[in-house]
Amino acid sequence: MSKNKKIFFQIVLMFALLGFTGILINNLIINLTRTDIGFKFNWLIKPASFSLAEHSLPYSPSDSYAWALFIGWINSLKVIISSLILATCIGTLIGFLRVGKNSFFRITTAGFITIVRQTPLLIQLMCWYFVGFLSIRNNTFLNIRNILNISNKGIEFFGLYLSSEFSALLLGLSIFSSAFIAEVIRGGIQSVPLGQWEAYRSLGISEKQGFFKIIIPQALPAFIPGLTSQYLNLAKNSTLAIAVGYSDIYAINDTIINQTGRAIECFIILLFSFLILNLLITKVMGIIDKSIMRSRI
């Protein structure tokens, strides 16, 4: 095929695709008008008139729906980022133990991964919340001076107060994701050819040094794609917050849909909020990936 033909073909394909999308969007708008659902966003500036238990920024029921949604987004972000960090720490530790020499740890971590991976997250979350936190009957489970206090109201750590809803979600999400992350770590480590282990051993390098200085740097590039996909899953799974009463963006959306009846708009906002969030995660992971690749050259 000549170059001109190729370009012509590309242009035709592009127009066909644009036309197709146009038809779909047109169809959607027609259908929305016909079913009388319409497509408006002016309700966003009206007062929300519902209160929220948790907000990191000032919020009152007389603030607008848009602000309530933003507060929800911040709440989501808060739980996603903290779970992401906690899950990575737990997951990495478990992943290391899973491939380690200690057979006791190898078996227990394998058991942990099996149980956590084979049960639904929703059930785990409810378990953490209703069975874990709320069933602390006499109000206090653990109280170490004024440093750590775990009760059915939540966790208090050095004056930092985490509600039981947030704590349950944080723990549930982190533990669930950590099992997957552990498997990513194990896969990455096992992708390093056996020869490398033999090589550092034959050079007389200690196990610890060999593992962290020889094996891990080679396994790192294999971690990134798996980790990225686990992080994206974690972010999306955070919408299960609604099951444990945490005011994340999905829960707030739910209330707004009910008050305004604007389900389509709300879901589009929700979709884009998560799209932006996940594109950010992908971007950051891409940068990390690139810097690792560069450091290897």
Binding site: S51, L52, A53, E165, I242, A243, G245, S247, A251, T255
Partner: peptide
């Protein structure tokens, strides 16, 4: 302090 759940059972 409102604690909101989606479902009456919760």
């Amino acid at each position: 302090i409102p604690i909101k759940y989606q479902d009456l059972n919760q």
